[in-house]
Design a protein around this nucleic acid. Structure first.
Lengths: 294, 294
DNA sequence: AATCATTATCAATAATGTTGATGGGTGGTG
DNA sequence: CACCACCCATCAACATTATTGATAATGATT
């Protein structure tokens, strides 16, 4: 049963006239008759009593009118809702550091623009995020990578994100003017999980250069890593944004070290055929640094 | 937008597959594709993300699914409701006497069979009932008539209803063995309204026979008529069912009078093209005395 | 009885829905 | 890596359904 029939039915009921309903809706009068007949056949009851001077809903018709009004209402609401794309949900997979130190302001902003939006921020390991984006469980992923890790996904760089080596403020290395790669030999490391991109990058570099190292502690949580480093448990590599606060407060020291191969960037990844809702588009755009007008 | 599209959409969403939804609904797979595309065009959003290994609702799709489920639910309910014809209303116009002494048991019975039915019992004058039945304001009328008063309506006789002349128990006429027409000359009458059918019949008869009479009191309410008669205010004509209780208790006396022209019958009247709901049909049938099986 | 206003009917036409064949993409397998 | 199995998209032919204008039928009004 077509919804336009219901609309016609309602119009006829309201105007108490086939003719005027037809005019109103831009139909020929005969079409209205046909449509109402279809409805009456569908439901197996008469909906109107056709008297000479006018129409009257039968009691069955009155019942149907109630339902039809609700249905048209629902349809209208659905249309508006989907058009605005205000509702719905946005499921983002990201890593702890970004969830804690990068995303909050953006999330707050999108919540203001789309109050009905249901946002899920799911911290996870990078490899799982990539997998879940491919499966469609996540609308998109946001993480720190050197290079896109999966060519089947669509990667967009937002900005470069510096890495820092951190130690306790009283660590011997922290007193040097410059720390070069070889000076790191033999240090005790506190590392994030094996799946962590920048850990992978660091290990690769150390191995390539033949620098000996020992991972005395592996912790999946960057907060805990910082705590252990501050307590003198070893040195660690972290995205600068994850350590900024502690560095500022002098709870951690940033080693004067840099290496061209340790370049990380903040990137989003999504399925190449992902359908992007208004809200998601807005969110993604908000992540992009403003570009110069031209 | 056809409701079958919504059904298809729901099926696809549930089965996570165009192909299986098509099988389930008896469509070709291409039809399902087309239908979903129509929906996506209608709402201007993508409803499914087509990944290689399966489908996934977009957040817009999830929103729509909620609405669609409600709409299909509503439609289903409406269909059942109208098929049962359980709900709806039944508006009956009738006269006081019948509303008070005849209809109650039938009304109770139909309320049990159709608990959702909204019954309105509207006491009114006979002429107004006929008018309102013609206008469609009433589903049908039930009244006492000698002959159908309006040929434009469809009249159905339920049974004959005797009329009785009543007086106070101590009235001189009440002591006679038989009262014939002429003995009524000069009596004081308490009458119902001018529009009352049996009053009209009586007056016509009295005039035709040249019997003098005086209407000392005209009361639209049969209860009040009985009260005034019992108080010795005069004699009155009433349907027997309206006086039965008082006659049994000896509060009123039935004069031993009868006349072949004073014949009344209980009849329903309705518009000839009235659409009769299940409930109304059942009610009308219940009024009819059981017929001999044959 | 004639007129007015309204709904119903009907056949022609327009619009829409459905289908089977086919193409293209994806993921799993040897 | 090529192959297969699976799935959705596309397309043109076809089937079905909706719409229309003309006209008939009906009931109310005068």
């Amino acid at each position: 049963m077509d919804l336009v029939y219901y609309q016609t039915f309602r119009e006829v009921a309201v105007r108490q006239s086939f003719t005027r309903a037809a005019e109103q809706l831009g139909y020929a009068q005969s079409s209205v008759t046909t449509q109402i007949q279809k409805l009456e056949k569908e439901f197996g009851v008469q909906l109107f009593e056709r008297y000479g001077r006018g129409l009257r809903l039968t009691s069955a018709g009155e019942e149907l009118l109630k339902t039809v009004t609700q249905m048209l209402e629902l349809h209208q609401q659905a249309k508006e809702k989907l058009a605005r794309q205000g509702g719905g949900s946005l499921t983002i997979g990201t890593i702890d550091s970004l969830a804690a130190y990068y995303l909050p302001p953006f999330v707050q902003r999108i919540r203001q623009s789309y109050p009905e939006l249901n946002i899920r921020l799911q911290p996870d390991r990078e490899d799982r995020i990539v997998h879940r984006v491919k499966e469609g469980e996540l609308d998109f992923g946001l993480m720190l990578v050197g290079e896109p890790t999966d060519p089947a996904l669509e990667w967009t760089e937002i900005r470069e994100e510096p890495l820092v080596l951190v130690s306790a403020p009283d660590h011997p290395l922290a007193r040097l003017d410059r720390v070069d790669l070889r000076r790191l030999g033999g240090e005790e490391w506190i590392m994030t999980e094996e799946t962590c991109n920048y850990r992978i990058m660091l290990e690769k570099l150390l191995r390539a250069e033949g620098i000996p190292y020992r991972i005395s502690l592996e912790i999946g949580n960057p907060e805990a890593v910082k705590g252990c480093v501050a307590a003198g448990g070893g040195i660690a590599i972290l995205p600068r944004l994850a350590a900024d606060a502690e560095l500022g407060r002098g709870e951690l020291a940033a080693l004067p070290f840099s290496h061209p191969d340790l370049r990380l960037s903040l990137q989003t990844c999504m399925h190449p055929r992902k359908w992007v809702s208004h809200a998601m588009r807005a969110f993604l755009d908000s992540l992009q640094p403003a570009e110069a007008a031209f």
